[in-house]
Amino acid sequence: MSEISLAQQKFLLTQKKHRRTVTISRMCIFLCFLGLWEGAVRLQFIDSFFFSSPSRVVLCAYNMAADHSLFGHIGITLFETITSFALVLIFALIITIILWFNKKISETMEPYLVILNSLPKSALAPLLIVWLGANYKTIIITGMSVAIFGSILSLYTSFQSVDPEKIKLIQTLGGTNYHVLTKVVLPACIPSFFSIMKVNIGLCLVGVIIGEFIASRQGLGYLIIYGSQVFKLDWVIMSIVILCLLAWGLYSLLSRLEKGYQKRMS
């Protein structure tokens, strides 16, 4: 190993200290929050019937895990989210490629895409349920409806931002539009494809939960809405916590994929 100068050592040390402080502070906030919450309930400052408490949430999760009902709910929500996410990616890619190949189609479709994208998608969910029935397919489509239009628009923008000189290069090498797509546009758009994925995994989850609110007998969205109706706030809060963990887990999975790709490219 090469020698590290004193100044560099000092710099590294301060960096390490800084990171440690941040980590500890984060933990502190989390623990204080849990402590205050639990304490406030125990001392009856707030009513555990409405506010639940950390220990009750854990207990509730433990009981539901013991009778396996919890895994069913998590599983179905996860399945619906991942399916709608995968379908969004596939359809967004196919549609964007079609738009990219044909300027007439893309210009014709543009205002529709923009309007559909700015529409609050939760407004569509009740309609979808009436049309398609209350089943998991409807929920998957609700999830897709939240993410697909934005994905197409951002993907199309990144297709458009490919350097025209690079496209000219392919033409000088005798390539056709198909080569421009496969040799330049798609590889050049992989980084933006990753960031689009990271945004949209969260949106799919939102869509799925909206769908489950109104059309499901299963899943975390159902637990939340049902729990709030029968005043089982333990269920509601537990589901929210699990949703947080799910969203974080899915996001970091994609981050890891992205890092892996970046590493392979350097």
Binding site: D163, E165, K166, K168, L169, I170, T172, L173, G174, G175, H179, K183, V184, P187, A188, I190, M265
Partner: peptide
């Protein structure tokens, strides 16, 4: 062209073979 436009997602070998690959 004016700029080399070598593709960063390809190695040098793959870059110089691009034309042959396309044709």
């Amino acid at each position: 062209l004016q700029h080399d436009h070598l593709f960063e997602w390809r190695t040098i070998e793959k870059n110089v073979l691009l034309g042959l690959e396309i044709q």
